[in-house]
Every structure is written in C-alpha cells, then in structure tokens.
C-alpha cells in the first residue's frame, strides 16, 4: 500500500539489534581481539619495498584476491540479515553488487590503526606506501582518510553491524525490482540503528555523521571502478585470466 514506515516495538528493535550484531560478529573475518594481538606487527622497511617493487599487475591481483576474500564474508553477513533472503534473487544480487565493497570500507575501520595510519593487510599492518605499486595513490589515500574518519566515531560492534546492514540495504540502488521491500528493510534497520545509538547514549549528531559517510562510500566505490577500468585497459588479459571470478562478476 505504499506505506514504508513500519511500526516496531522496542522489544523488536532490541531483537533486531541482537540478530544483526550476531550476524556481523559471525562474519567479520577477524575478531577485535585477534586484531589487537596483531597490532604490533607492522611491515618492516624491506617488506614495504618488496611490495613497492612488485609489478603493478601482481599487486592489483593480490589486492583483488584480498577484496574477494572479504566479499565472501559480506555475502554471508547479508544472508544472515533478517529478511534479506526473502528479497527476490535479482535484488539480493543488486544489493551485494553495489554494496559489498562499501561494507568492506566500513568494516575496514576495525582493522585500522589511526595512530600509525596503517591497515591490516596480508598478515601485518600496512601504511599507504605499501600499496604504491597499484598506481592509485590518490584512491589509497582517500581510503585511508575514510578509515581514519570512521575510526574517529569510535563505533561499537553493534553500531558498526547496524550501519553495515543499513549501507547494504540501500533502497536507492539502480535495477531493484522490489524497491518497496528493500525500503522497508532499510527503514527497519535505520530504526534499530537509532535505537542502539540512543541506548548507547551516543551524541545526537552521530546518525547524521553516519548518513554523510554514505556519499563518501559511494565516491570511493566509483573511484575504485574507474581505477579498475583504467587498469583493465592496459592489462585486459591479466584481469581476464588472473583475477578472481567473483571480483570480475561484481566489478567487471
């Protein structure tokens, strides 16, 4: 009937928060404690130089593999979100194709060390210089800036889980067939996010700050697509034969 404003009780919201937090923790690839234990492991200068001296296509392939691994966890997260698997298959694919990399960027703040400006990559914490061989310093720098800015919000795991689900369930993606269903799910998730922010006694403007992150995420993802197109124009065979098939499906 066109009404997308669900009436949800506090108990339902609590339940929703619990479910999404559980799904997030089950699929987040690394637990905070694990990352904490590895936080002292930074790449040594000769290791940094070894990444920098890799051929461009080898470094691109390595990053494509790492992104693809992370995407598989995001797919599992999506599957465990209440209502996601009730959407039509077209819309499940549309949401993941558009949103999986965005969720990876959101999740990245868990693996980011703001003090050292490093991120967990390939077994240790890496600064932006590790990625120099990719030939996309501007994009890498923006990704690090985004992670730093997300970290500064100090989101708890349940807040991060709800925000990730909110991003994934964006109802304004192109090619959705049952937009209304997605809108309902996203609104329910936003209510749960508001609920958890209030419950955790977070500052009033935090939801607004998170909403602003959505446009930053879209910009990062479109710039990733541009960089991939530029790379593929030079190395079409590398992408065709050496990149993970799932990565090509989503970004090709």
């Amino acid at each position: 009937n066109g009404d997308t404003s669900p009436t949800v009780s506090m108990a339902e919201l609590d339940h929703q928060v619990q479910l999404i937090s559980k799904s997030h923790l089950e699929t987040c690839q690394y637990l905070r404690e694990e990352l904490q234990q590895m936080s002292w492991q930074n790449f040594l200068q000769d290791e940094v130089e070894s990444y920098q001296s890799k051929p461009r296509e080898v470094m691109w392939q390595l990053c494509a593999v790492k992104i693809t691994e992370a995407i598989q966890y995001v797919v599992e997260f999506a599957k465990r979100i209440d209502g996601f698997m009730d959407l039509c298959q077209n819309d499940q694919i549309v949401l993941l194709k558009a949103g999986s990399l965005e969720v990876i960027f959101v999740r990245m703040c868990r693996m980011f060390d703001s003090q050292n400006n490093t991120v967990f990559f390939d077994g240790k914490f890496a600064g932006p210089d590790v990625f120099r061989a990719l030939g996309c310093d501007d994009l890498i720098s923006s990704v690090f800036d985004f992670a730093k800015s997300m970290c500064s919000l100090h989101l708890s795991e349940d807040e991060l889980a709800l925000f990730s689900a909110f991003v994934l369930l964006s109802a304004d993606r192109s090619w959705l067939q049952e937009k209304l269903q997605v809108e309902k799910l996203q609104q329910k998730t936003q209510l749960a996010l508001q609920h958890v922010l209030q419950k955790n006694q977070r500052e009033d403007g935090l939801l607004h700050k998170l909403r602003c992150k959505v446009s930053a995420l879209r910009s990062l993802c479109s710039r990733h697509t541009e960089k991939l197109s530029a790379f593929r124009a030079v190395y079409p065979d590398i992408v065709g034969t050496h990149f993970p098939p799932l990565y090509k499906e989503l970004f090709g």
């Binding site: 465990r80 298959q89 090619w175 799932l246 989503l250």
Partner: peptide
C-alpha cells in the same frame, strides 16, 4: 542478472554455515 552473476548466485544459494 542471475546469469551474469553465477558465482554470487551460488554463494547466496549455499546454506549458511
């Protein structure tokens, strides 16, 4: 879309472990 995203579709079909 399903035809162009066979791996993603397969991952979605696999039961949650």
């Amino acid at each position: 879309l399903k035809e162009k995203h066979k791996i993603l579709h397969q991952l979605l079909q696999n039961s949650t472990s």
